[in-house]
């Protein structure tokens, strides 16, 4: 696997994808009333990949993540998760199929305790909760120390850890991270990104939405660039990293 990555992660991706992509998005169009948020977006995420989704504010990155997670109902196109269609408007179904969204702004349940937040993360599973809680506290010791504190009292970085820990309670096969670096100090961002890389090594397929393109390109294997609702560029992250960011966002250097 490591060897293949060195030669070309593009070909690695395509061999894995040929297997069966974990996520396959085909010509997805999403509208909010008269506003088209996504236009004919297609992308694939192979097993064990970290795929970046870059783009300026308002490009539709969050809408794409939320549509993959089943929150929005697309006008056309579909999302396949492990080969099965995601039902738009029923996010609980995608969640039960092993997908977790770590949402923008973290969306932890502030008035509930840290432990209650984690418990909610495991609602799609049967019991075996105790081991999962212990595993979460081993991985995030600060959450263990604050388990009976209300989650709203945590710092931004701790809340981001909680959001990820909550997602992990479900033993997901794929995690969508929506702007995990937003509002965090650089040191904390490094920790979060190390964690995302580490989780991939544990076999979690990841999609990473970032405004901070440099960070995302450093971490991801491949990336897509979204501009006003359409994909304007895609390719190996190391190739995209060589292109001027402004050009990327303007849609030049597209490799489609």
């Amino acid at each position: 696997m490591g060897e293949q990555l060195v030669t070309s992660s593009f070909s690695t991706a395509s061999t894995v994808v040929a297997d069966q992509p974990v996520i396959a998005v085909t010509s997805l169009t999403v509208r909010y009333g008269a506003v088209t948020a996504l236009r004919e977006v297609s992308l694939e995420v192979g097993r064990g990949e970290i795929v970046g989704v870059l783009g300026p504010n308002g490009a539709g990155k969050s809408t794409l993540m939320r549509t993959i997670a089943g929150v929005h109902k697309p006008v056309t196109g579909q999302v396949l998760l492990e080969g099965r269609p995601v039902v738009g408007g029923a996010p609980e179904k995608a969640a039960r199929a092993g997908l977790r969204l770590v949402p923008e702004g973290r969306r932890i349940f502030g008035p509930l305790t840290v432990e209650e937040n984690l418990r909610i993360g495991s609602m799609s599973r049967g019991s075996t909760l105790k081991d999962d809680l212990e595993a979460a506290y081993d991985r995030f010791p600060i959450l263990g120390e604050r388990r009976s504190q209300s989650a709203g009292t945590l710092s931004g970085g701790e809340q981001q850890q909680l959001a990820i820990a909550r997602a992990l309670m479900a033993h997901p096969t794929v995690i969508l991270y929506d702007e995990p670096s937003l509002g965090l100090a650089p040191r904390i961002v490094d920790q979060i990104f190390e964690l995302i890389a580490h989780l991939r090594d544990e076999g979690v397929t990841s999609v990473l939405v970032e405004q901070n393109a440099r960070l995302a390109l450093d971490l991801s294997d491949r990336a897509y660039v979204l501009g006003s609702g359409s994909i304007t560029a895609s390719g190996k992250s190391s190739d995209l990293a060589k292109i001027d960011l402004a050009q990327l966002y303007l849609g030049k250097g597209a490799q489609r």
Binding site: P91, E92, A95, P103, R107, G121, S124
Partner: peptide, 13 residues
């Protein structure tokens, strides 16, 4: 507190 985020945890609305 937040129905959509709760559903994203696999809880049926």
């Amino acid at each position: 507190l937040d129905l959509t985020t709760t559903r994203l945890q696999g809880v049926s609305a």
